[in-house]
């Protein structure tokens, strides 16, 4: 565990707190993509199946349970909560997320490090996480004025991915035999997807005005 990894995990946790805060405090999920949230739920379920049969550390296990719990809570609020579900902008959230699931599954079957059930599902979760933000990014472009909490949620998610890259660079230079090409390539693609968003986020923040993605 290094400082970049810890900061990355805490930023990820904070992003989920910000999103849950927005939903619970404002009783609204305006601007939030349910498709992205459902993809994250799939990512966490397929990646954290190892909770059942392997143990890395208490830290890892607790974080996995928290990520799973928060992902399902968010999906519950957006789809089933009697007030919040009416604030979901269905017509703005039109990205065909099933293509992302299918594409990630095909890629995981073709490119993996071991052809076993759990290994392929784990690899699938790595590929799917890389593209899971796309429905949210497309939805932000269509939303117009983006509220602070939603903008900060996406910003924190992007920060978390950036910190993971720094963590990999640190680990690669300090650990022997540390090599995870599938994770690195997916992670770099995932982080690159935020570049556009970061540009407009920082620009609007600098000019002190409401976030709009043209």
């Amino acid at each position: 565990m290094n400082v970049f990894r810890l900061a990355g995990d805490l930023t990820h946790l904070l992003s989920l707190v910000v999103l849950l805060l927005k939903i619970v405090a404002t009783k609204s999920c305006r601007g939030v993509s349910a498709k992205t949230q459902e993809l994250y739920a799939i990512v966490f379920v397929t990646r954290y199946l190892d909770l059942l049969f392997s143990f890395v550390s208490l830290y890892n296990s607790v974080m996995k349970v928290v990520f799973l719990g928060s992902a399902f809570s968010i999906v519950y609020f957006m789809r089933y909560h009697k007030v919040v579900r009416h604030t979901y902008d269905r017509e703005l959230d039109t990205f065909r997320s099933s293509f992302l699931v299918a594409g990630s599954m095909v890629l995981a079957l073709l490119i993996n490090s071991k052809y076993t059930f759990f290994e392929v599902l784990w690899t699938f979760s790595i590929y799917l996480e890389a593209v899971a933000i796309l429905p949210q990014l497309v939805m932000l472009q269509r939303t117009g004025n983006i509220d602070n909490l939603t903008g900060n949620y996406v910003f924190l998610l992007g920060m978390y991915r950036g910190l993971y890259i720094l963590n990999w660079i640190y680990r690669y230079s300090t650990e022997r035999r540390y090599w995870q090409m599938i994770v690195w390539v997916s992670g770099i693609i995932q982080t690159a997807l935020y570049a556009d968003f970061f540009y407009y986020y920082l620009k609007c923040w600098n000019e002190n005005r409401t976030l709009v993605i043209p």
Binding site: R5, F118, E119, W122, W179, Q180, M181, V183
Partner: peptide, 10 residues
């Protein structure tokens, strides 16, 4: 190449 077993990140 590190597989799922060697992966200790979240």
């Amino acid at each position: 190449q590190m597989s799922r077993e060697g992966h200790d990140e979240l």
